[in-house]
Every structure is written in C-alpha cells, then in structure tokens.
Amino acid sequence: MDLSAINPVLLIASLMVAATPLLLAAIGELVAERSGVLNLGVEGMMITGAVTGFAIAVETGSPLLGFVGAAAGGAALSFLFVILTQFALANQVASGLALTLFGLGLSALAGQRYVGIKPPPTPDLDIPILSDLPVVGPILFGHDPVLYFGIFLVAGVWALLKFTRAGLILRAVGENHDAAHALGYKVVRIRALAILFGGACAGLGGAYISLVRVPQWTEGMTAGVGWIALALVVFASWKPWRVLLGAYLFGGITVLQLNLQAAGVAIPVEYLAMSPYLITILVLVILSADKSRAPASLGRIFHASQ
C-alpha cells in the first residue's frame, strides 16, 4: 500500500469531475420535485442521455453537439413521463420505474454500434497564466466547460427559485396544487416544463459520464448514479446549494475509493466499490428524520375535477 501515491490536487480536481454527473442530474430532479413531481426515472434518462450524447458526438465529431443532443434525448424520454403522469394520471412511482427500465433497454439497443469506440475529446478550458497556476490552476481553471455549466446551473436554479416570480409559481404548484390551480396557474403545464427540464439535466449528466468521465460507451454505465442523484435531492433538503455540497461529497467518496483501490489498500476492491452506495444509505438515514422540507404535494396526482 502506498498512500503517498494519492496526489491531493489531482484528487480534488477529479472529485469535481466525478461529482458533475450527479450534480447535473440532481439539480434537474430538484426542480421537478419542487414542482411536486417525483420522477424516479432519473437513471433511465441519464443512460439515454449518455448514449444519445455519445452517438451524436461520435457521428458529428463535436462534443458540444453531443451534449446538446444528450439534453434533448433526456428530455424526450422525460416527455413519456409527462404523458404518463400529467395526462394519463398514472402513479408516479410506477411510471418512474417504467422510465428507468425502458431507458436501460433503449440505451443498450441504441448503443450496440458504439461499444469500444473512443469519443472526440471534450477540450479543457485553457486560460493563459490562470490554468498554469500551481494547485489553484488544475482545481479551479483546468476543467471542461460542462463542469462550469453545472455550477452555473445550480446558481441559476437557486436564483430562479428564490428571487423570481416563475420560481414562486413553481414552488406554489409543488406545495399545494389545488390552491395554485384555483389561482389560475396551469399546474399541468408548469409540471410538464419542470419534468422536461429535469430530463434535459439528467441527459446532460449522463453524457458527461460517457463523454468526459469514462469516456466510452458501455451498457448500463451509469451504474446507479441516477438513483444516488435522487437520494442527493433528499440529502439537500430540496435546496440548490446543498445539492452542490452533496454532489462534491459523493464525488469525493467515489474518487477516494478509486484512489484507494489503485493504491492497493488491503480492503478488497468489491468492498471499496460498494462504499458509495452504503454511504448514501447512511446519509439518507441521518437526514430522513427531518421530512418537513419536502414539497407538500410531492408525488400526488393532480386532476382539476377534484
């Protein structure tokens, strides 16, 4: 075992990369849940985004188009969820599961031709002087644009929910859809938009795994990140900045266990690999005592006749 092989600067820099898919997926799900919709299909939307992003990036040679396509792919899958839960008034838990099962199958089908191919590299930001600074450079200024976009998105969602009228309406729909409806807000339309936003974010997160983090396509490669993102929203008590904190925490655990594996710690690989999931459970247990922060209409079906 050689712990000195772990370089703290690289560790933090790679932690940010590991956290970004989680961050993107979780901030999207946070918006959906604040509007009162529990979408358990995050894993399915992520893997769909991962495969569409990968395919488009490989075909066009442009990672940027890949990410745009991934967002569209994730949103397209989440549109099925909109149809099921908002128009067909189906149970949200069951519909979310359906989305995940369907997304996993669809992505495996679509991705067959792309196994073993390398995607075009996503260029890192390269600011003269700043990116070359020791320690600060690789951590703050040496990443790809999508990573910064993720942080920007958190700030954007925070500002939207806290300061704007649109954010207030979104929260009103999530807290009490009957009252919001009585005030004349289009509950179904607002929720549909929130779900689509969540889908696009999850798609981006998935593409970040297949285009930047890994980068290649393998079946089922999201490996539960979507589910951890769902847990993260609970962890964050539905607050945007806490999502960032939580994502970095989980990213840190993931990267640390990978580093420990590489450093040859005496713990078997399998037990290190299960640690992020176990820690997610632990965090859920600690935080589940306080349920008061959850949007009051979360998971309830809205129909104007009632």
């Binding site: 099921l84 067909a88 189906a90 997304g103 996993l104 199958g105 669809l106 495996a108 089908l109």
Partner: peptide, 26 residues
C-alpha cells in the same frame, strides 16, 4: 434481433399499461 430489443419491449409493456390504466379510474 438484439437482446436489448426485448428489454425495450418489456419496458414498453409497462408504459402502455400505466397509460391505459387511465380508463379504469376515469
């Protein structure tokens, strides 16, 4: 036929079921 196609097929089944269930309650 790719193995994943049947997985998609099974997922579809659940989709349609949930969607048509509307007719049971409404």
């Amino acid at each position: 036929l790719p193995a994943a196609a049947i997985q998609v097929f099974q997922g579809m089944l659940l989709f349609f079921l949930l969607a048509f269930d509307l007719l049971t309650d409404y």
